[in-house]
Design a binder for these strands. Structure first.
Lengths: 193, 193
DNA sequence: CGCTTAAAGCAAAGATCGTTGCGTTAGGAG
DNA sequence: CTCCTAACGCAACGATCTTTGCTTTAAGCG
């Protein structure tokens, strides 16, 4: 009885149905107008199952928003830094350009705050990895301020301004900045990775 | 009967009490765990009044988050661009460094999306003004990407990394960036101002 | 100082949500 | 194949939340 948890079969099906329903409803009504009974009905699942698995709505939204883009997808690593960064940032833009994922992110934002376990923590962990590659002329904090932040801000508040070139624009700003003083300030933020 | 609306006296008092209650409760329970009856009780006001005035919770949260920092506060204008920008950005950082306002912002984020009437629209309008001052070597979009975004991102997801020098760091990045190609790309975003 | 009516209070009915106890289904190990 | 039990379904209850019709208060105007 190694784990005791059940991962396959019915559980997995229910989970998939619930995720699907959440995405649908969040897309068409906004994260704030979604309720658990609503999701359960759409998913063809009993509300009790949802309550037992997640406890409450913010938790569920944050959870689903977190594991949507990646379990352990590999970071681009062609040896060409700029290309890798653009590819990475582009993935994020592309992902959140879909209204479903944007709405989920907004829901996750509402649940963020005190704790570090918000739905973007994986992204920050990736930033730390990218910034620590040998020769990277920027710190993880720069990646957060210059690449992640603009993308996420636009996703949440100005989704209609998301363009395919946003990733490249941000990366270029990052790489052409004078590494003034800084670079020693990195890693203080996402130290959990 | 010029307007028909009532702005003074009791209405104003109720409004103030409600705002106060919302801020209290959002601070101590998080925007996601606040309900209208709860607010009404804390404010010493009848729930019906709130339902009638705002309709529902997301609307109210967004509304209160919007008009908290400024009706028509004047933008810094000393003639010294860098100082003005740092003062402006500093106001924003200082404002959202208070947990109350950060929590409200998260609630507003959840309600944002399709429409432009989110709780940061006034900030973007200010960015347009600042970018259009004669001689400003940046566009409104740069101000959004390099100053507003990093601040807001940290407020929502990494509030404990908000430091007093953040404003200056962002402004310096803005002013030392090579105005590469760009500067013609401004104003497409917050044209409502 | 009265009139008009926007906005708040009150109370009760209706809808929705979240919890809990118990029976049923089916994953996983032996 | 069989047993054990994690996870789901069902049903009923209690606790909120939301709406609605009516009454009361007081802002703004003549």
């Amino acid at each position: 009885m190694s784990t005791g948890k059940r991962t396959g079969g019915r559980s997995a099906v229910v989970l998939a149905q619930v995720r699907h329903a959440v995405e649908d409803l969040v897309k068409e009504r906004g994260a704030e107008r979604v309720t658990i009974p609503l999701i359960a009905e759409r998913a063809g699942v009993n509300p009790t199952s949802i309550y037992r698995r997640w406890g409450d709505l913010p938790t569920m939204l944050n959870d689903i928003a977190t594991y949507r883009l990646d379990p352990d997808r590999p970071l681009p690593d062609t040896g060409e830094p700029r290309a890798d960064l653009v590819a990475w940032a582009g993935e994020i833009v592309e992902h959140y350009a879909k209204p479903v994922n944007a709405a989920l992110l907004r829901g996750g934002a509402a649940a963020a705050g005190e704790t570090e376990s918000d739905c973007l923590r994986n992204r920050r962990a990736e930033a730390v990895v990218l910034a620590s590659r040998s020769g990277a002329p920027f710190a993880a904090d720069d990646l957060i301020d210059l690449v992640i932040s603009p993308i996420i801000y636009r996703v949440i508040f100005l989704p209609w301004t998301l363009t395919p070139d946003l990733a490249a624009r941000c990366v270029d700003r990052l790489l052409t900045q004078r590494t003034s003083g800084g670079q020693a300030a990195g890693g203080e933020v996402a130290s959990e990775a």
